[in-house]
């Protein structure tokens, strides 16, 4: 038995109803340019710190304040003129600060967005160059890797409360291209990364040391790490394979959970997260929060997995306005933010 909800965005849930998506609100960005990303951020609006939605179009980034009854009002918009916005980089526990990545196909600039004391919108250049991977961390920190093989650099930046200054620390480079970073739940000074050559690397964020470089096999080439969990001396890592080949009969897993013993660098597969029968597609974009993973697929559908249960718990099919193109979890509650290129952002409670 499958439950199919009404428009907008057909929702499929499994018969056990272990997960459910319910549409609670819709934001319409009237900008003519293409929407590229969404996230949530803590912001002090009219003297009150609250969780706001932040949306990005090609040349604008807008902050939305919540009103009553799940309605949203746009309060600030930052404008960009030369390089388009690629993604929002939230700094998870920061207030009144958010970063954005700008570029064409690859990230060329990272900018910090904030407001001055007199409520003027400000932006400052944090990093420029050939940026390969970036992640916002807790405690107003941002990690990014840039440069090519010979001048490869991994920087950890810490921003002041107001965003006016930053401290920079260099992490030891694994001397190969880093594709993605992930925080390690349960080990706050650890940072994990995946590399182009199928390695997983671990840093100590306090000392900047590169603790381990571990080969995870050719079947994981160019994997993206989304989240890691440290438990009982082992590291559990959620990966996706944006370049994975789809096997027609069963499809390739969208996410994969592996386990690594960091002491021995030995690893094993734990569980694949695949699409239900009859659905196909490859990973385009996605996010893992706590035990929930969401992905936008090449088919234009959004799929949600409960990592503990091990199976897909909800599917959000494209609606009459078109395919889904980006998806994020809200920072404060179990809401799924689903966006389309035309500026529509739908908020679903899970």
């Amino acid at each position: 038995q499958t439950k199919v909800a009404e428009h907008p965005g057909e929702i499929w849930c499994d018969s056990l109803k272990l997960g459910n998506l319910q549409l609670v609100s819709k934001l319409k960005n009237p900008s003519d340019s293409c929407s590229v990303d969404v996230s949530t951020v803590w912001w002090e609006v009219t003297g009150c710190k609250e969780s706001c939605i932040i949306t990005a179009c090609e040349f604008t980034v807008s902050l939305w304040k919540s009103l009553d009854n799940w309605q949203w009002r746009k309060v600030y918009t930052w404008h960009f003129t030369e390089i388009p916005v690629l993604q929002i980089i939230p700094l998870w526990d920061a207030c009144n600060l958010v970063c954005v990545a700008l570029g064409h196909l690859e990230i060329r600039e990272i900018r910090l967005l904030f407001c001055s004391d007199d409520e003027c919108l400000k932006q400052s250049l944090v990093k420029s160059g050939n940026i390969k991977a970036v992640l916002g961390l807790r405690h107003k920190r941002l990690v990014c890797s840039n440069g090519t093989l010979h001048d490869h650099q991994v920087d950890l930046m810490t921003f002041s409360g107001s965003g006016r200054s930053k401290e920079k620390q260099t992490l030891m480079s694994p001397e190969e291209t880093i594709l993605a970073f992930a925080e390690v739940q349960g080990m706050q000074d650890a940072l994990l990364g995946t590399t182009l050559m199928s390695n997983i690397v671990i840093w100590n964020l306090k000392t900047g040391q590169l603790l381990k470089k571990m080969q995870i096999g050719n079947s994981y080439q160019a994997s993206i790490c989304h989240k890691a969990y440290s438990d009982m001396g082992l590291l559990f890592v959620v990966l996706s394979h944006p370049h994975g080949k789809e096997i027609e009969s069963m499809g390739s897993p969208i996410f994969q959970l592996i386990v690594i013993n960091p002491k021995t660098a030995l690893s094993a597969d734990v569980r694949p997260y695949s699409l239900p029968q009859g659905h196909t597609g490859r990973f385009l974009d996605g996010e893992v929060k706590d035990t929930l993973a969401a992905a936008v697929l090449t088919s234009g559908t959004i799929a949600v997995w409960d990592l503990f249960l091990g199976h897909c718990t909800a599917l959000l099919l494209p609606n009459s306005d078109g395919n889904w193109s980006f998806v994020k979890w809200s920072g404060t509650d179990s809401c799924l933010l689903a966006g389309q290129k035309n500026g529509n952002v739908f908020v679903y409670s899970y």
């Binding site: 100590n204 603790l211 009982m232 013993n261 960091p262 002491k263 094993a268």
Partner: peptide
């Protein structure tokens, strides 16, 4: 997988790797 697949497990792996890694 069992402990024999992954080798000996240490609950203090982070501290141990930090002391073993180059500064």
């Amino acid at each position: 997988c069992s402990e024999s697949d992954l080798g000996p497990i240490s609950l203090n792996w982070f501290q141990e790797l930090t002391s073993e890694a180059p500064p």
